Amino acid sequence: MTPLLRAEWSRLFSRRVTLVTLVLIATLLAFLTFGFTLTRSSPTADEISTAGKRAEAAAVIYDRNVALCEAVQSGTETAPPGVNFPRGCDYGARPTADSMLDFGFSFARQWPALFTTAAIVLTVAGFVLGASFVGVEWSSGGMLNLLLWAPRRGTVLAGKLIAACAGVALVSVVYLTAWTGAFVAVDAVNDTVSVMGFADWMSLLITAVRVALLAMAGTALGFAIASMGRHTSTALGVGIAYLLVYELGAIILFQVIGGVDYSAKYRLSSWVSAWLNKSHTFESTSASCTDTGCTPAETVLSGSWQQAGLVLALVVAVLLAGAFTSMRRRDTN
Rank of each mutant, 00 (worst) to 15 (best):
V195H: 12
L244W: 13
G159V: 04
S326Q: 11
V186R: 10
L176M: 05
M228C: 11
G218L: 06
V315T: 10
V66F: 08
V195F: 12
S269N: 13
R40N: 12
G309F: 11
V121Q: 03
V318C: 06
V245E: 03
I48V: 14
S286R: 15
L243D: 03
S172R: 02
S42T: 15
P112R: 01
T117Y: 02
V66R: 06
T295N: 03
G135F: 09
A250E: 09
S273G: 15
C294G: 00
S106T: 06
L161T: 07
A313S: 15
F324T: 08
G309L: 11
S279P: 06
D261C: 00
G159Y: 05
D200K: 05
A55F: 03
P112N: 02
G126E: 04
N190Q: 10
M228G: 07
A79I: 00
T18V: 01
G222C: 00
F31C: 12
I252A: 13
Y262A: 14
A71W: 02
K160S: 08
S286W: 13
I48N: 00
A163R: 06
G218M: 01
L205S: 11
L253C: 01
L320K: 09
T37S: 14
K53A: 12
A71E: 12
L114I: 00
A224Y: 02
D98C: 01
C89I: 00
T207E: 08
V66K: 08
R329H: 13
T192S: 14
F85Q: 04
S99V: 02
A224Q: 08
R6F: 11
L214V: 01
V272T: 15
A57Q: 07
L19W: 12
L312K: 08
A313E: 09
S227F: 10
L214T: 03
R6E: 06
S41T: 13
A55T: 00
V136W: 11
K160P: 03
R94N: 00
H231E: 01
M1G: 09
L244C: 02
A212H: 06
L28I: 15
F133L: 10
S49H: 06
R328K: 15
T177W: 05
G239I: 01
M1S: 12
F31W: 10
A26N: 07
Y91L: 03
P86H: 07
S14Y: 05
L29C: 02
T219N: 04
A113K: 07
L32V: 13
L5C: 10
S10P: 01
P86C: 01
F198M: 07
A163K: 09
S172Y: 00
K278L: 13
L146D: 10
V124G: 04
V238P: 03
Y262K: 07
L320S: 08
G309T: 10
